[in-house]
Amino acid sequence: MPITRDEVAHLARLSRLALTDEELDHFAAQLEVIISAVARVQEVTAEGIPPTSHAVPLTNVFRPDVVVPPLGAAAALAAAPAVEEQRFRVPRILTEG
């Protein structure tokens, strides 16, 4: 399944990556190679084997509903690029008016 230049542009936009036209061409070609390499997995006969999302065949790994002391605001905010009113300050969320 080839990946189109438009799809790469779409993914870049979703990931908030500003790619130039040259970069789009470059990555589209690279991703094409990666995807076709991974696609070889589909050649393996795997009838009756359900797809997995995890390497370890475990289910129901739970923790009890018990409070663990949190970090504290000072430590939580220590590495934040900007802080105001004990909150993480983030740039404008919506660009459109």
């Binding site: 923790r63 509903d65 018990v66 409070v67 663990v68 949190p70 970090l71 504290g72 605001a73 939580a76 905010l77 009113e85 004990q86 909150r87 993480f88």
Partner: peptide, 21 residues
């Protein structure tokens, strides 16, 4: 009493960013 994926407390109205890990 604790969050979905960690042990942070869940009380309503706490000071900002005091229930995080």
């Amino acid at each position: 009493v604790s969050k979905m994926f960690c042990g942070c407390p869940t009380g309503f109205g706490a000071e900002p960013n005091t229930q995080v890990c």
